[in-house]
C-alpha cells in the first residue's frame, strides 16, 4: 500500500517538476521563425509581411470572398506576440495600444481578439488568420501563408 502511494506521489512529483520546468520558457520564449496561417479552406496562397500587417491592423478587413477577416492573436505578454508586434507590426506595445484606441474613434474598429489556442480557432473558423512558432504550428490542420524568419 505504501509502495502504491509512493509511486503515485513520485509520478505526480515528476509531473510537477516537468510543469515547473516547462513554465520557464513561457516567460522568456526563445526566438523562432513565425508562421502565419489561415484556415485550410481559405483560397489565399501566400501573403507578404506588409499584407499581414495591413490585415492585423485592420486596414484590410475583408477576404476576397467578402467575408470578414478574423485576426486572432495569442495572449498578450507572450514572447510570440511580442516578436510578431516587433517584426510585423513594427510597433511597441504602447504604440499598438495607442493605435487601437485611435482606430476605435477614427474607423470604429476594435483590436483583434486574443485566444489561448489560436490553432484550434483558425481550424474552426474559415475566416481566421493567426500565427505561431514554426515548431508549434500543426501543419496538417492549417494552411501556412507566410514564413517570417526570426531576426
Amino acid at each position: 500500500m505504501q509502495k502504491q502511494q509512493k509511486t503515485s506521489r513520485a509520478f505526480l512529483f515528476l509531473l510537477f517538476i516537468a510543469g515547473t520546468l516547462q513554465s520557464t520558457p513561457l516567460e522568456a520564449e526563445s526566438l523562432d521563425d513565425i508562421l502565419v496561417f489561415v484556415n485550410p479552406s481559405n483560397s489565399i496562397r501566400k501573403l507578404s509581411v506588409a499584407e499581414v500587417r495591413q490585415i492585423f491592423l485592420k486596414e484590410k478587413t475583408k477576404w476576397s470572398t467578402g467575408n470578414n477577416i478574423l485576426c486572432i492573436h495569442p495572449p498578450q505578454n507572450v514572447g510570440l506576440r511580442n516578436q510578431f508586434r516587433s517584426q510585423v507590426l513594427d510597433m511597441t506595445q504602447e504604440e499598438e495600444d495607442t493605435y487601437w484606441q485611435d482606430k476605435k474613434i477614427r474607423d470604429n474598429l476594435s483590436p483583434p481578439v486574443s485566444l489561448g489556442n489560436t490553432y484550434r480557432a483558425v481550424f474552426s473558423l474559415r475566416e481566421g488568420i493567426s500565427y505561431g512558432y514554426r515548431k508549434d504550428v500543426p501543419r496538417s490542420a492549417v494552411k501556412i501563408v507566410l514564413v517570417i524568419p526570426a531576426h
Partner: peptide
C-alpha cells in the same frame, strides 16, 4: 500541439 506549446493550455 497546443498542449505542448500554447501558454494558456
Amino acid at each position: 500541439h497546443c498542449s505542448q506549446s500554447t501558454p494558456t493550455v
